[in-house]
């Protein structure tokens, strides 16, 4: 089992993702430079948060044409797991791997805070370890996290259970008050129809240890590991402690 963390110019959550995978989950992980065109041997690719290319033009718009993205699209089409967090989610929508787009927060402010989200679908490689409707506290930090898609697309997402996470209050209630950025239907994370591409605005890599205020993010990482293990890709993934 091998994980990859893509580094675009302007990525800034790449180290956090690497730390979560390498130090906490203790799985093999490699950096993937944005010019890399081959993803052979990887099982799961992380597109981390940040401000790729300074968010110029539109968030994620320029990163989408990085050489690595052709390989990521190919990897995803072959069934490889791809997870885009925050700016990574924005890159995935720009690349057409996920429907809709992320626009300026309704309140216009950059929001950086702890947020509760409800798991809407546990039948995915990214949420298999969660309980149905489980409420997770995961931090958000974005200026452009307002999910938008036309009605037809939203209906399709709902019908196919592609809405994976929704913003909610601490009790799991989905309401306008619990929606930090104006996203349609309180959407915080979605997958593609095939369930192997997942984009989310909250940062699970920032809450993987108690000392970070919450370890709810571990569930996302553990879900991926369990999913890949079940696929029999490899069992001896844990590094032997030196």
């Amino acid at each position: 089992m091998k994980f990859g963390v893509v580094q675009f110019p302007g990525s800034n959550c790449d180290l956090d993702c690497y730390y979560a995978l390498n130090d906490i989950m203790q799985v093999p992980v490699e950096w993937i430079w944005h010019k890399q065109e081959n993803l052979d041997g990887f099982d799961c690719i992380f597109l981390p948060g940040g401000f790729t290319y300074g968010d110029y033009l539109r968030v994620g718009a320029i990163a989408r044409y990085s050489p690595v993205m052709t390989a990521v699209i190919d990897f995803a089409e072959k069934g490889g797991l791809v997870i885009g967090i925050c700016n990574g989610f924005q890159v995935l929508t720009e690349a057409g791997l996920l429907p809709g787009t992320l626009t300026r927060n309704e309140c216009l402010h950059f929001i950086c805070k702890q947020q509760t989200v409800r798991v809407e679908n546990i039948d995915t490689p990214f949420t298999g370890m969660c309980k149905k409707k489980q409420v997770l506290q995961i931090p958000i930090a974005h200026g452009e996290g307002c999910y938008y898609a036309d009605k037809e697309t939203i209906n399709g997402l709902e019908k196919n259970n592609q809405i994976i996470l929704k913003y909610c209050d601490v009790n799991g209630n989905i309401s306008k008050q619990a929606n930090p950025n104006g996203s349609i239907s309180n959407i915080a994370g979605i997958s593609n129809k095939e369930r192997n591409v997942f984009g989310l605005m909250p940062h699970p890599e920032r809450c993987i240890e108690d000392c970070l205020g919450s370890d709810a993010g571990r569930l996302i990482f553990e879900s991926i590991l369990i999913y890949l293990e079940k696929k029999n890709i490899l069992f001896n993934h844990k590094k032997t402690p030196s």
């Binding site: 033009l57 044409y65 938008y148």
Partner: peptide, 8 residues
């Protein structure tokens, strides 16, 4: 392709 996002 690049300058606009046809979704919005």
């Amino acid at each position: 392709k690049l300058l606009s996002n046809p979704v919005i």
